[in-house]
Simulated assay, not measured.
Amino acid sequence: MSRMQRHFDEQDVQRVNTAIGEVEEITSAEIVCVAAASSGRYDRAEDIFGLLLGMIAAGLVWIFLPDAVPGGDTWAGYTPTTKIAFMALAVLGGFVLGTVWASHAWPLRRPFVPKSEQRENVSHAASAAFFDQSLHHTRAGTGLLIYLSMDERRAVILADEAVLEALSQTTLDTLCRDLTKLLAETDAAEALCQTIRRAGQHLEALPRDEDDTNEHPNTLVLID
């Protein structure tokens, strides 16, 4: 099972797809929802956790190793070189284990990642997704991106010119704040569905033309 499948099963994806389709029936806006497992690698946080675990491992070795050796309850019987070797191996082993462990478990990295770094990474990833999905190339400049990053529990909403003029940046910011709050109150799929429909209420200012064509599939994009 992929990381994103733990957040969105097939029914969840279908619920979001349906919400997009319903809104695009009444507006010319092209809505794309992207949900990513994470918006950054946060290697430094992995290293910090690895170093911390290495130090803990060294402490445990210093306290308990002499007792584990028959007839020994202190380090007195060990040469300085042996002591250093044991401690170095403990630090190295703890560091490697910690970095690998933290790379697969966001809660272990999160305490060591500044909020500002999370916010910046999510913003950059959302901007990249906006261009990757070609939302800047819609026929009437009606692209709207709703981007969600699961690890950071942050959201970004970006719009092309026509949508920005119709909704205003203030409305987009409000929708984004509300989406972030919804993440703490309900599941991610429901949070997206509610946000899409709330955006649809404002997007009535951009009614769908009779010759309007769907330029983007009404499909939630999942990024592991």
Rank of each mutant, 00 (worst) to 15 (best):
A76P: 07
A76T: 10
G77E: 01
T79F: 15
T81K: 14
T82E: 11
T82P: 07
A85E: 08
M87N: 14
A88E: 04
A88N: 05
L89Y: 07
A90M: 05
A90L: 03
V91L: 13
L92N: 02
L92S: 06
L92R: 00
F95G: 00
V96K: 11
V96L: 11
L97N: 00
L97K: 01
L97C: 06
W101C: 01
A102K: 01
A102Y: 01
A102L: 03
H104Q: 03
H104A: 03
H104R: 10
A105S: 02
A105I: 00
L108V: 03
R109M: 13
P111Y: 09
F112W: 13
F112K: 09
V113N: 12
K115R: 15
E117L: 13
E117M: 12
R119L: 14
V122H: 12
S123V: 02
A125F: 08
S127C: 06
A128V: 04
A129Y: 08
F130P: 05
F131N: 04
D132E: 08
Q133I: 01
Q133A: 10
T138S: 11
T138H: 14
T138V: 08
R139K: 11
G141T: 05
G141I: 04
T142H: 13
T142Y: 14
G143F: 10
L144T: 02
L145P: 13
L145H: 10
I146T: 06
Y147V: 04
Y147M: 04
L148W: 02
S149C: 07
S149D: 05
D151W: 12
E152C: 11
E152T: 08
R153A: 14
R153Q: 15
R154D: 07
A155H: 07
I157R: 09
I157W: 14
I157Q: 07
L158W: 03
L158K: 09
A159T: 00
A159N: 05
A159V: 00
A159L: 02
D160A: 08
E161N: 10
E161H: 12
V163L: 12
V163A: 13
L164A: 13
E165H: 15
L172F: 09
L172W: 12
C176L: 04
L179M: 15
L179S: 07
T180N: 14
K181H: 13
K181Q: 15
L182V: 03
L182I: 00
L183M: 15
A184H: 12
A184P: 06
D187F: 08
A189N: 04
E190I: 00
E190A: 05
A191P: 07
A191M: 06
T195C: 11
T195G: 15
A199P: 10
H202E: 04
H202K: 06
L203R: 04
A205N: 06
A205M: 05
A205L: 09
